[in-house]
Design a protein around this nucleic acid. Structure first.
Length: 473
RNA sequence: CGGGGUGUAGCGCAGCUUGGUAGCGCACUUGUCUGGGGGACAAGGGGUCGCAGGUUCAAAUCCUGCCACUCCGACCA
């Protein structure tokens, strides 16, 4: 049966069609517990705003419930990642959160990983663990099915919750213990082919972050516990970043590869261009080199948030776990692999760190939970409410993601809430405007306001919003 | 794991020094008036004062232990 059973009543009560159900929302039917005061535990701005905007709720140290508004952002981020992974030729799947310890004993990481790994025993007294990453499991799946070089290259990913029992979780979902991560794994016959896979992900990542409204800089990185030879971290500059980073200023102006980039072709020129200017994290920085190759007026020394990391690690896991394929010459060879991570639950605060002002969040349109906040300034006024209902319906039909503030509250409260939760455009209708057939559109980011005839509202908003969705670039 | 801090209503806090049956603001409920930047007035509801033990006629307050959260450091997507 279809999975709608339990929701059927809700669907019938609040929406007439699936499409109505999908994109827009009345605030009176929503769950948006905004906070006027700041919970004392929140230190950095993104954490404060996520709590105040009713996006997350802490359940224990480093564990968060994602409330509707936050979850909607998370889903939008996930969709962009899925689209760009598909474009780059990676195939989506889903692996479990719990894993058998034996797999990790095989790779030697069961002992190596230490206390950050959450170990669990099931009822049969078997050792299990809550997966902090999935190299072992994907390698096991690969070796179970793939025998021939003819089935390569292969690139698989999933988006799944991970757990690392951090000593000190902090900054909300920036550094939580449970976190949602996209992790992908490439399998290739040799190093050269594997490097191609690495470049595909490198380019996909540039596009992915750009589409979310971020400028993420690929920087030379340590390979850490994953191991391997080559690695880049993708870094978003922010004062609250956890690590010091160093780069050439011009790297911020590099062109983003367009959507028609041929991922089956040679991506070396793009990667070379992006890595031609110096960029390294504090772990990898060579100050002498930095000062030698970057002119003084182009040097950026800042703090950054890591929002993704890609590794080429060769045969590290395939050798020890015997993930081999038979080559054209009839000989078995261990496959070359890489892994490619993006921290979704970290991206949300990272974007907020980059996009906010004193009144609240300022979402980039492509990942905003709603594109328009329709503010009915006087719910008791018939003309006003009629105009709002019409616009609400029209915007829904036009495929614009709109949140209709139909609560009984005063105007000030509605403005404050809309500003706080960061909806890119406020569509403001009050008795004055309803009478004269006009609405006001406020740009959350610039503060600009324009007055528009009611019958021009949908077109005006569509023209403002659609190009900024960044889904056709 | 080392060093600090904090636990009192949903949130933010006062009360603790000097023990005497718990208070403020916001939020919530009801009503009236409001209605272009978190509105006003009135009347209400809500607490095992983190947990356990001890001292005392009496503990939010003093003592002991524990727990949770949090900040700084080492560690990390």
């Amino acid at each position: 049966m279809h999975g709608r059973g339990r929701c059927a009543f809700t669907v019938l009560k609040y929406a007439n069609t699936e499409s109505e159900f999908k994109d827009h929302m009345r605030l009176s039917n929503y769950f948006l517990p905004v906070l006027k005061e700041v919970p004392k535990e929140a230190e950095i701005v993104s954490h404060r705003l996520m709590l105040r905007a009713g996006m997350i709720s802490q359940q224990a140290s480093g564990l968060y419930a994602w409330l509707p508004l936050g979850y909607k952002v998370l889903r939008k981020i996930q969709t962009i990642i899925e689209q760009e992974q598909a474009r780059a030729g990676s195939v989506q799947m889903l692996m479990p959160t719990l894993q058998p310890a034996d797999l990790w004993r095989e790779s030697g990481r069961y002992d190596a990983y230490g206390k950050e790994m959450l170990r669990i025993t099931d009822r049969h007294d078997r050792d299990m663990l809550f997966g902090p990453t999935n190299e072992e499991m994907i390698t096991d799946i690969f070796r179970s099915y793939v025998r021939s070089y003819k089935e390569l290259p292969l690139n698989l990913y999933h988006i799944q919750w991970k757990f690392r029992d951090e000593i000190r979780p902090r900054f909300g979902t920036m550094r939580s213990r449970e976190f949602l991560m996209k992790d992908g794994y490439s399998f290739d016959i040799d190093k050269e082919a594997s490097e191609k896979a690495y470049r595909r992900m490198f380019v996909a990542y540039l596009r992915t972050y750009y589409r979310m409204g971020l400028t993420a800089i690929p920087m030379k990185a340590e390979t850490g516990p994953i191991g391997g030879d080559v690695s880049h971290e993708f870094i978003v500059l922010a004062d609250t970043g956890e690590s010091a980073v160093f780069c050439h200023e011009d790297i911020l102006q590099k062109p983003i590869p367009p959507r028609d980039t041929d991922f089956t072709g040679d991506l070396t020129p793009i990667v070379d261009d992006w890595t031609s200017l110096y960029a390294a994290t504090e772990d990898m920085i060579d100050m002498e080199e930095f000062e030698r190759v970057v002119p003084e007026d182009k040097r950026i020394a800042a703090r950054g948030i890591e929002v993704g990391q890609i590794f080429y690690f060769g045969t590290k896991y395939s050798e020890i776990m015997k993930a081999t394929v038979t080559g054209a010459d009839g000989k078995d060879v261990a496959v070359h692999s890489g892994s490619y991570g993006i921290g979704l639950t970290r991206l949300v605060p990272a974007i907020i760190e980059a996009c906010h002002d004193e009144n609240g969040i300022v979402w980039p349109i492509s990942i905003a939970p709603f594109e328009v906040a329709l503010l009915n300034l006087k719910i008791a006024d018939e003309m006003t409410s009629k105009a709002c209902e019409d616009l609400y319906s029209q915007l829904g039909t036009a495929g614009i993601d709109v949140l209709y503030d139909d609560r009984k509250d005063g105007a000030g409260a509605k403005f404050a809430t809309a500003d706080l939760i960061g909806i890119p455009f406020q569509l403001i209708i009050g008795p004055r405007g309803a009478k004269s057939g006009e609405a006001e559109i406020k740009n959350r980011k610039t503060g600009e306001r324009q007055t528009v005839p009611l019958d021009q509202v949908v077109k005006t908003l569509s023209d403002l919003i659609i190009p900024e969705r960044r889904d056709t670039i």
